[in-house]
Simulated assay, not measured.
Amino acid sequence: MPKKHNWHKETAMIHEGYDSKEHQGSLAVPLYQTATYVFDSAEQGERRFAGEESGNIYSRLGNPTVRVLEERIAKMEEGAGGLAFASGMAAVSAVLVHVTKANDHVVCSRGIYGCTFGLLKIMEEKYNITHTLTSMRTEEEIEKAVTDETTCIYVETPINPTMELVDLQAVSNVAKRHGLRVIVDNTFCSPYIQTPLTFGADFVLHSATKYLNGHGDVIAGLLVGKDQEEMQKIRSTVQKDFGGVISPFDAWLLLRGIKTLPVRMDRHSSNARILFDYLKKHPKIEEVFYPFDDQHPQYEIAEKQMKTGGGLISFTIKGGKEEAQKFLNSLSLVKLAVSLGDAETLMQHPATMTHSGVPKAERDKMGVTDSLLRLSVGLEHMDDIMADLEQAFNAI
């Protein structure tokens, strides 16, 4: 097992969980592209299956490349243990299955990813696990949503795609008073910008497809918890039996992407800040939503729990669905695509894309209107991004 260090986060993203001396001196983490492992003896296989001896058994249960990734993300999020999954939704599903049972209740931030909303509907229809969406503006508002059946509070912050913020400390205060677990989707920020466990959350998860990978070529999810034994329980039950594990190759790609996360996030954030100033003054835009806008009603929360504003901006275009789609269809450099966190600048229409599965009444409550667009600011030169946006604005 590699030695633990008190490195700064930027250093841990390159080195945590790996000792080249244990891998024939390889500087890069080796790709262990294998499904199973050979035992020295039948007795060794028995001991490993019984949990009496550590070691590899089968890559659904553990893999050396994946193990480095899990240790690295745990360190980055200041947690005790990490688990890697085949997608962000596999991570969401695993932790929600772990903390709930039939007839329980979940309190959720008002805006959540469309597929997370879909999962909650499935849980309600099949197991009567109900949920309440609330804006979580105050501790009192969160408290009102808690019932005798509530078992956990599920939070996105910033919220997808409206960029509303949730005060993580306030959520944790309420959770402690009621003995509830707190789960935070930290995809929009990455652990470079925000570490929810330090504000009292029990679990933090990521669609690692996004900023952690950063290159648009991996589908993956990560989950970190503050209790090592509990994370091991999730590994040996929900993850093992549901089987939504990451492939060694995708884990290897993620490890490569994470090495440059701090540099990329600084560039995403600085580009977004410049673009925010441009969009805020544009005559064809009604509103712009960005966490580090000093006019944002929750700016104090952003300053308290986020290092920078990140690379995502949402805005409402003057008009409606027709104008929004005409604008999107006029883009050239900026790519019309869902997802976020890639080197390329991406834009999408949440109401008809990522949140199309959410009923319109719920979308309206979330603020996901037909005129809302979500922009993931990439790493290109800002002059080129703005020139493309400007020509698209001129087309409407």
Rank of each mutant, 00 (worst) to 15 (best):
Gln24Asn: 12
Gly25Ala: 10
Gly25Lys: 10
Ser26Pro: 00
Ser26Gln: 03
Ala28His: 03
Pro30Glu: 09
Gln33Gly: 00
Ala35Thr: 09
Tyr37Arg: 10
Ala42His: 04
Ala42Trp: 01
Ala42Ile: 04
Gln44Gly: 09
Glu46Ala: 13
Phe49Cys: 02
Ala50Arg: 15
Glu52Lys: 12
Ser54Val: 07
Ser54Gln: 08
Gly55Trp: 00
Gly55Ile: 05
Gly55Asn: 04
Gly55Val: 08
Arg60Lys: 11
Thr65Ile: 05
Val66Ser: 06
Val68Ala: 04
Val68Met: 05
Glu70Thr: 07
Ala74Leu: 06
Lys75Ser: 11
Met76Gly: 11
Glu77Pro: 09
Glu77Val: 03
Glu78Leu: 11
Gly79Tyr: 10
Gly81Phe: 11
Gly81Gln: 08
Gly82Thr: 12
Gly82Met: 11
Leu83Thr: 04
Leu83Met: 08
Ala84Arg: 07
Ala86His: 14
Gly88Trp: 02
Met89Tyr: 11
Met89Gln: 13
Ala90Trp: 02
Ala90Asn: 04
Val92Ile: 07
Ala94Ile: 06
Ala94Thr: 06
Ala94His: 02
His98Gly: 01
Val99Lys: 11
Thr100Gln: 07
Ala102Thr: 13
Asn103Gln: 13
His105Val: 11
Cys108Glu: 00
Tyr113Glu: 13
Gly114Tyr: 01
Cys115Met: 10
Thr116Glu: 13
Phe117Ala: 02
Phe117Asp: 03
Leu119Lys: 01
Leu120Ile: 04
Ile122Ser: 02
Met123Thr: 02
Met123Gly: 05
Glu124Cys: 14
Glu125Arg: 03
Lys126Ala: 13
Lys126Phe: 12
Asn128Arg: 14
Asn128Cys: 14
His131Tyr: 14
His131Asp: 02
His131Pro: 00
Thr132Tyr: 15
Leu133Lys: 10
Thr134Arg: 10
Thr134Ala: 07
Ser135Cys: 03
Ser135Ala: 11
Glu139Met: 15
Lys144Glu: 07
Val146Trp: 02
Val146Thr: 06
Asp148Pro: 01
Thr150Gly: 04
Thr151Cys: 14
Tyr154Phe: 15
Val155Ile: 10
Glu156Met: 14
Glu156His: 05
Glu156Gly: 00
Thr157Tyr: 05
Pro158Ile: 01
Pro158Ser: 02
Pro161Lys: 06
Thr162Ser: 07
